[in-house]
């Protein structure tokens, strides 16, 4: 069904820049971010909201851009991996992922970082188990989970709330780690 307002361009903000795009409102956000705005951070993984590789923030809340439509982001603020931080000025979560070397192929990395950033903004001092649950529905096939969890706990620490986080991080690999 096509209602009158659908003819008007869709306005929303991405990484602080206002956009007004003349596209159907049922267009999935990921195509617009990647192809119209050339933002490569969000990755197409499943198109079903299962794996999380496409995660962006919508008004600060994690969202799966492969299922979200333009209609849902109309008038809202979208943040992608590029908007979180840059090579020169990375967000603390990005910096923690770099420090912890939390990528192999890195295809899932966007989702891990964006989900972690949204999670830490609500739970600044998580336990390790809470971090595991927060990332439960983000899939990684390379098996980078250990480094990713370490990065999340490091980020929590760096963002200033982390004595429990630091303690928890050591239980990831036990004392016997080389």
């Amino acid at each position: 069904m096509s209602l009158p307002e659908h003819a008007a361009p869709v306005s929303f903000e991405v990484n602080g820049v206002a956009h007004s795009l003349d596209l159907p409102r049922e267009t999935r956000l990921i195509y617009v971010l990647r192809n119209d705005l050339q933002l490569n951070g969000p990755k197409f993984g499943c198109g079903l909201g299962e794996c999380g590789a496409c995660t962006v923030l919508v008004d600060g809340v994690a969202a799966r851009a492969c299922v979200l439509t333009l209609k849902s982001v109309e008038g809202r603020k979208v943040t992608t991996l590029e908007g979180l931080g840059t090579l020169d000025l990375p967000h603390p979560v990005q910096a923690a992922f770099i420090t912890a070397q939390a990528a192999q192929c890195g295809y899932c990395l966007n989702g891990m970082i964006m989900t972690a950033a949204a999670f830490l903004s609500r739970h600044p001092a998580p336990t390790l188990d809470e971090a595991r649950e927060a990332l439960r529905y983000n899939l990684c096939r390379c098996g980078t989970h250990v480094e990713i969890l370490r990065a999340v706990m490091l980020a929590a620490q760096a963002m200033g709330a982390g004595s429990t986080a630091a303690g928890a991080a050591t239980t990831l690999e036990g004392a016997d780690h080389d």
Partner: peptide
């Protein structure tokens, strides 16, 4: 040694084949 590719991958600056235009 830290991997050379991770900073770019963590900030969206890395170009995968999926990002080739």
């Amino acid at each position: 040694v830290p991997r050379v590719d991770i900073p770019a991958k963590a900030t969206g600056a890395f170009v995968y084949v999926h990002d080739v235009r």
